[in-house]
Structures are given as structure tokens and as C-alpha cells.
Design a protein around this nucleic acid. Structure first.
Lengths: 235, 235
DNA sequence: GCTCGGGTGTGACTTTGGTCATGGATTCAG
DNA sequence: CTGAATCCATGACCAAAGTCACACCCGAGC
């Protein structure tokens, strides 16, 4: 509930789909916003809970998660500074799609629903911007479904490493989280991530320490990610 | 490429998010639309292909699918009359998210991209309507991910039966497709669907013939769908 | 009627995924 | 430095998913 209006305004101005708004309106929205800090592993909101506003990540990283009784979690996506959470329930009136938890200590901005819906109505550009955000999410979810439904763990692991490497822009990079977190992204459990990485390592495809990974054979890694089982690679 | 303008107009008027458009504009769009018929199993478009328009299902049913080399398919969703396909690429400029194939002989209307984007810009209600469509899709995809990542086949099968039953509005209903199609919805293969249904049958939870299903014990079926393994049900 | 072909159910087997238990490494507070 | 708390790797085992082969059912079309 800190009062840092100028900072808040800067944050809002950085959200792509609010660009079409005149400064005056941005300021009005910023004035009605509140700030919230969350600790690592603290829940921001729960799947299904009623939503009355939009969250903007100011700092840190937030994981969007579905979980099963028995404690297993599946990460749907992770969002960092500048991203918004909760567009879906904001605009279709339902509850939150997933549970949000801090992947690290984070600061969020909370915008009341009415302000945004208003902006959409008066500035078609805003609505189109939100459409793009949702479209992107549909794409990533479709990708996730494909991975889970038709690729085995080796392929998914290979894919994850390629993604991370691409994001880092180098072939040596640090893994984003613990084995547990990787498992939650890959739809499996800690132990199998270990084994999977182990196999890639002994096959000479990557070098792996606890956090650091180097891709040695990008070709083969890509082939694996494509789902080509490496039959005839043994011995 | 048949010319049935009045029918086309009626179809467009039935699309929820085009309601805000005045009749004059609807007519203009209808005039620029073309009709396309597809046979069962014919592809309408391929995942990744560039998209320059929006499809509207006039009659029949279209499956949206991702497939792996090796021929396994995962159905993302199925759309019937009144639904639209391809909103995502239309509005974010990318390729189609999935491959569309006729689940049965179907008739589609094709609307050129410019007409729709235009309508969004001039009528915020249209954009908000599309947002609702995308929001719905995000929800169903999130559900699919959850099913695939954290429920076993028994739970998913139970869930499917409950969904179908609810859709039919009765506890006796016909299954939507072949075992193969069910498998593609559930993220598995023909044989396992057979076995899974077989287990539910011998447990006295449902009655099953090739097409017809009757739910005998909705409670237990729901419990299974929740993912509670039925430990202690054997012997 | 019969045949043919797609759709199904089942058994036997392989492979993959998941669980449990254990020991080693790493980090960090005191 | 030392102990506690994590995190990680790995072996042994168990359960679920997937494959292959085959026999059957049943409706469409001679």
C-alpha cells in the first residue's frame, strides 16, 4: 500500500497494451492502483477465486500453477516485470484460471477491474492489445499440451534446455530453478529430471552441474526435442 | 464458392461477438465472405500455415489438432455451428495454432482478415467479444494441461464421460466418436481407452456398449475424475 | 445370405514414468 | 567450524502407459 505514484505511472506506461492511453488516463488509473509485495512461495491468488482486478508484475517473478491433491504442481507459465496476470477472469467474469505464487520475492501492482474495462471500451487499441496477450497465451498453452500429450520426458527436457539456451542467448547458461521447479514445468517429478539430465550428460550432449548447463551437441539435442527417440544410440 | 448471401448474413448475425455490428456492416462482410465445404478427415488448414482470414463453422464439426510424427494426434478442441476458427493468428499475425480437420462433412464460411480487424477497431464491443472467446479457450487449454500433467488415464476417462453426460443432459448418452477419437481427446491410444472403459464397466460404475454409455454410479465416477485413485477397490 | 473392412476388446510383453530410501554435496546461520 | 536444511543423484522396486498380435463383432454393399 506504499504511495509511489510516479513509479506506478512508469510501470503502467511500460505495459504494451496501455500505450494507446493518453497520459491523463494513465495517471487516473495509477492513482487507483495499490501495491502488494509477496514473498517467495507466497500465494497471490488461488485458482477459481473471484477476480476483481488486474495484477501487474513490477519486480520479481510469478509462477502460474495448477496443482493436484498429492501436492504435484504443473507450471503453466511464469511472468516477470511488465507482464500482467488475470486478464482472463477480468474480462469474462469467471474466477482465476490458475494459482499464482511468488517464484521469488516480488512486487505487484493491482488495478481495479472497472478502470481497465473502461479503457478497453474507449480505446479499441487497448482491447486489441489484450487480445494479443491472450493470443500469445493460447499459443504457449497449445504448445504445452502438445509436449505433455505426445512427447516423452527426454524430448521435453531437451526442449526445455533449448528454450532456456535461446532465452539466454548463449549455449552456456544457468537453469532457472531447482530440479523441483523444472519438474513442475515438464510435468514430472524431481527424480526423473535428474535422470533425464543424467542421460543427456552421459550421452555427451550437454554438460551439467547443479545450476549451470552447456550445450555440447545442439543438433542432437534438437533432434531429441523433436521427439525422435534415439534408438540405436546405446552401447 | 456458392452464392447464398442471405444465409451467410444469418450465420454472421448468429456469431455472438458480431452482434454489436449494425446490419449494414454485417452485410458488407457477408458480401466479401466465401463458402467452403470439407469432407470428413479433410484438412481445412495446417498448424503454422499463414492465416489471412477467419473461418466460421456453418454446419458440421471441426477438430483442432496437434499431431506428432508417428501419427499420434491430440485434439485440442472441437467446434460446431456458430463457432469461429483462427482468431489467434488473425489478430497476432502468426500462423495457425493447430491443424483443423473435418470431424464430419462440414461447411465453413471464410471471412477476410481486414474486415474483422476493421470491425474491432470501430466497435469495441466486437473486440471485447473476441476477448471472451480467447479467454474461454485459455480456460479449456489450462484444463487440458492439468488433465494431462496430473491425472492418470482412469481419471481423464471418468472426466470425459462426465463431460459428455453433462453436455447431453442425461446419464445415458452416445459417445461422440470412435475409440480412436476418444483416445486423441484423452492423450492416449485406442487400446487404453478400451481397457479404461472396461475397468469402469466391471467396477459397476458405467454400462458401456460400442457407442452407448449409461452412468450407474455418478458419485464414484466423479471421485475418480477428481484423481482419487481407488486404492482398496481390488479383489 | 456372404464378404469385406473398419472399429473393438484382450492377452502378453516392453518401455516409460513414478515411488521410496539412501548418501553425498552445498549453503548458510550461528 | 559445525550442524541443519536443502538440493541433488542414484539404485531398487512398482505401477502406468504403450505396443503388437490376433480374434471378433457388426454394418455396408454385393
Amino acid at each position: 500500500m506504499t504511495k509511489v505514484t510516479p513509479e506506478r505511472e512508469a510501470i503502467l506506461a511500460a505495459i504494451p497494451y496501455l500505450r494507446p492511453l493518453p497520459a491523463r488516463e494513465l495517471r487516473r488509473i495509477a492513482a487507483r492502483a495499490t501495491v502488494r509485495d509477496v514473498r517467495r512461495d507466497e500465494r497471490v491468488f488461488e485458482e477459481g477465486a473471484p477476480a476483481e482486478g488486474l495484477f501487474v508484475v513490477m519486480a520479481g517473478r510469478i509462477r502460474l500453477v495448477r496443482s493436484s491433491r498429492g501436492g504435484r504442481e504443473q507450471i503453466l507459465h511464469t511472468e516477470g516485470p511488465g507482464a500482467t496476470l488475470g486478464e482472463v477472469p477480468l474480462l469474462d467474469g469467471g474466477g482465476y484460471v490458475a494459482t499464482a505464487v511468488g517464484a521469488e520475492p516480488s512486487r505487484l501492482l493491482y488495478l481495479p477491474r472497472a478502470a481497465i474495462v473502461d479503457a478497453c471500451r474507449r480505446h479499441p487499441g487497448v482491447a486489441l492489445g489484450i487480445i494479443r496477450v491472450l493470443a500469445r497465451r493460447v499459443r504457449t498453452f497449445a504448445g504445452l499440451v502438445e509436449q505433455l500429450a505426445l512427447k516423452d520426458l527426454t524430448a521435453r527436457t531437451a526442449g526445455l534446455l533449448l528454450t532456456e539456451s535461446r532465452a539466454a542467448g548463449r549455449r552456456t547458461f544457468d537453469l532457472s530453478g531447482t530440479r523441483d521447479e523444472m519438474a513442475a514445468r515438464l510435468g514430472t517429478v524431481r527424480e526423473l529430471v535428474s535422470r533425464s539430465l543424467g542421460r543427456l550428460r552421459t550421452a555427451g550432449i550437454v554438460r551439467v552441474t547443479r545450476r549451470r548447463v552447456t550445450i555440447l551437441d545442439a543438433e542432437r539435442l534438437a533432434a531429441l526435442a523433436e521427439g525422435l527417440a534415439v534408438r540405436g544410440e546405446s552401447h
